[in-house]
Structure formats: structure tokens, C-alpha cells
């Protein structure tokens, strides 16, 4: 199932609606990385609130997306990881190093706005 990617000002918001297969994840990766530059986005938020499982492929792909997005000139925040999922992930050693995380969409937006308000007065 495709993940819808919405443009909201300078940010892109991708909300994961249901469990993702490996190919869905790869599709999300290429779509996001393309859209970042095409939409001239400064930040990307991936909302995983509805995921109740996060396997190693998913977390590695998310980490890769974050790094690719950074190379394409934007910042990425993953939001909405459930408490149970978070603990299961660290037990499996999936720590999403160097990736910013936030509690929910609102927090993610606040974080990105803070990031850019210091450098960019337009936001």
C-alpha cells in the first residue's frame, strides 16, 4: 500500500497507514527522496503512529531515508513510535541512531520549526 506524502508549507508529511511490506518501504524511500528536492522541502516527517511492529528492515530503511534526506538538504523526524514498539526495538538493537524522533506529529512540527526559525526568518 502506498504511503501518502502530503506537502505542508516547507515540510513533507508521510503518514504510514498500515503495516508496510519491504517493497512498500522501498517505494516510500524513493518517493520521499525525490519529493524532497522537487518540492524544495526543508523538513520531512514520517508518522508511524499506526505501526505496532517495527522489524529490522523497516528501521534500517527509515534510518537510510533519514540519511538520504539529509544528503538532499532537508531534516527528517520520525514521530509516533508507540511505547511497546520503542521498547521492542531497543531490545532487538534497532536504535535508529542519528535519527531525530518525536512523540507525535505536533511535536515533530514544533521541532522542525525550532530548527529552522533560528536560521531562516521566513518560517
Amino acid at each position: 500500500m502506498d504511503v501518502p506524502i502530503l506537502k505542508q508549507g516547507y515540510f513533507l508529511i508521510a503518514t504510514v497507514q498500515s503495516a508496510l511490506t519491504d517493497s512498500d518501504l522501498l517505494q516510500l524511500r524513493s518517493a520521499l527522496v525525490q519529493r524532497v528536492v522537487r518540492c524544495r522541502s526543508r523538513g520531512v516527517i514520517v508518522d508511524v503512529t499506526s505501526l505496532d511492529v517495527m522489524d529490522s528492515f523497516a528501521s534500517r530503511t527509515l534510518r537510510d531515508i533519514a540519511q538520504m534526506v539529509r544528503l538532499r538538504g532537508a531534516k527528517m523526524v520520525i514521530v509516533g513510535i508507540q511505547p511497546e514498539v520503542a521498547f521492542a526495538m531497543v531490545q532487538l538493537g534497532l536504535k535508529l541512531e542519528n535519527v531525530t524522533t518525536a512523540l507525535d506529529l505536533e511535536e515533530g512540527l514544533v521541532h522542525l520549526n525550532q530548527e529552522f526559525s533560528s536560521t531562516d526568518k521566513r518560517l
Partner: peptide
């Protein structure tokens, strides 16, 4: 340590 990391995943 895992608790600390899991909390970070929740943005805290």
C-alpha cells in the same frame, strides 16, 4: 540503557 534509548525513540 535500553529504557533511555526507548525514551529517545518517543522523543524524550
Amino acid at each position: 540503557v535500553q529504557t533511555v534509548e526507548a525514551s529517545r525513540l518517543l522523543g524524550a
